[in-house]
C-alpha cells in the first residue's frame, strides 16, 4: 500500500517544502559552498575581493606541522573520549538492566548529563578539576604540581576527554539499556542454566548481541567528538596550554576568527567536512546491513 501523501497540485507541494528547503539552503548549503569557494581563494580578512589560488591553501594546511598536531590531538581525543564514554555507559546499563535497587531513579539520573549544553559541562569540569580549589586540590597539596591542566598539556587533554566522555555517557547509556532490554530474558536464563555466571553472561551473550549498538555508538561518538567538542574546549582550555588541546574544530575557529585567515579556516573546515561525510557513510552502510539475528 502506498502510504505517501500525493499532491495533484505540485505548486502546493513546492510551497509546503519551501520553508524547510530555504532553511537547509541558507544555513547549510550556502555556507558550505562558500567555504568550498574560499578554500580555493585567498580571502581578504575584512571582505572585498579575493584571488583564485587553486590548491595553495590545501598544500599549506597539509604541510603545516601545527595542523597535523591538531589532527593528532583530535584523534586521541575522539578515540579516548568515545571509548571511555562507551565503557562507562555499558557498565551503567548492565547494572541498571540487572534491576538493582533504585534502578528506576538511576535510569533517569544517568541520562540527565545529555541534557546539558557543552559549555555548561565544560564550566563544571573546569571548576571541579581546578588544581587549586577543586577535587584534586587535596592530592596536589601532597604532591605539588601533580595535576595542573593550565600548565600541563596531558592534564588538559585528559580533562577535556573526561568532560566529553561524561557528556556522552547519557546518550550511550540509553542506547545500551534499550539494547540490553531487547535481549530475551530466557537467553540469559539459558546461559545461567548452562553454568555461566553474571560476568560470563555479559561477555559471552550480552556483548555479542549488543555488537550492532556498540558499532553504531562508536561512529556517533567519534563524529560527535570531532564536531561537537568546541564548547568544552573553548570553556575548559581554549586550546591550550601551548596548543595541547587544539582540536581540529577549535583550530578552525582560532585561525578564522582570531587569526582572521578566512581561507585557511575554510580549507580546514572542508577537510573536516569530508572526514565527517566519510564517517557518516560508514554508519549508513552499516545501518543498511545491520546484523540481524533471527
Amino acid at each position: 500500500m502506498n502510504k505517501r501523501a500525493t499532491f495533484s497540485n505540485s505548486w502546493l507541494a513546492a510551497a509546503l517544502l519551501l520553508p524547510q528547503l530555504l532553511l537547509v539552503f541558507i544555513f547549510f548549503y550556502w555556507p558550505s559552498g562558500e567555504a568550498l569557494w574560499w578554500s580555493f581563494t585567498l580571502e581578504r580578512p575584512f571582505g572585498g575581493g579575493n584571488e583564485w589560488v587553486g590548491f595553495y591553501n590545501y598544500l599549506s594546511v597539509l604541510q603545516d606541522s601545527r595542523y597535523w598536531g591538531s589532527v593528532r590531538v583530535s584523534v586521541i581525543f575522539a578515540i579516548a573520549a568515545s571509548a571511555l564514554s562507551i565503557l562507562l555507559a555499558l557498565m551503567l546499563a548492565v547494572f541498571v538492566d540487572r534491576r538493582m535497587r533504585g534502578h528506576q531513579i538511576l535510569k533517569t539520573g544517568f541520562f540527565l548529563p545529555y541534557a546539558l549544553a557543552a559549555p555548561a559541562v565544560g564550566l563544571a569540569f573546569r571548576f571541579i578539576f581546578a588544581p587549586d580549589a577543586g577535587l584534586i586540590a587535596g592530592i596536589n597539596r601532597v604532591f605539588p604540581g601533580l595535576w595542573n591542566p593550565a600548565l600541563d598539556g596531558n592534564d588538559a587533554l585528559t580533562l577535556i576527554i573526561l568532560a566529553q566522555a561524561w557528556s556522552l555517557v547519557g546518550y550511550n547509556f540509553i542506547f545500551f539499556l534499550a539494547g540490553l532490554q531487547s535481549i530475551p530474558r530466557a537467553l540469559l536464563e539459558a546461559g545461567a542454566m548452562d553454568g555461566a555466571g553474571p560476568l560470563r553472561r555479559v561477555w559471552d551473550l550480552q556483548l555479542p548481541l549488543l555488537a550492532p549498538t556498540l558499532f553504531f555508538l562508536l561512529v556517533i561518538n567519534i563524529t560527535d567528538s570531532f564536531v561537537n567538542s568546541f564548547g568544552i574546549v573553548d570553556i575548559v582550555t581554549s586550546g591550550g596550554p601551548a596548543r595541547a588541546t587544539e582540536l581540529m574544530v577549535y583550530k578552525v575557529y582560532t585561525d578564522g576568527f582570531q587569526g582572521k585567515d578566512s581561507s585557511l579556516a575554510a580549507t580546514q573546515s572542508v577537510i573536516l567536512m569530508v572526514l565527517i561525510m566519510a564517517l557518516t557513510f560508514v554508519q549508513f552502510r552499516f545501518i543498511e546491513r545491520k546484523v540481524h539475528y533471527n
Binding site: P184, E189, P208, Y293, N294
Partner: peptide, 14 residues
C-alpha cells in the same frame, strides 16, 4: 544439576 528446555528455545542467536 538441572538442564532446561525453554518455550522459545532460547538458543544463542550469535
Amino acid at each position: 544439576g538441572c538442564a532446561m528446555v525453554f518455550q522459545n528455545y532460547a538458543l544463542y542467536p550469535h
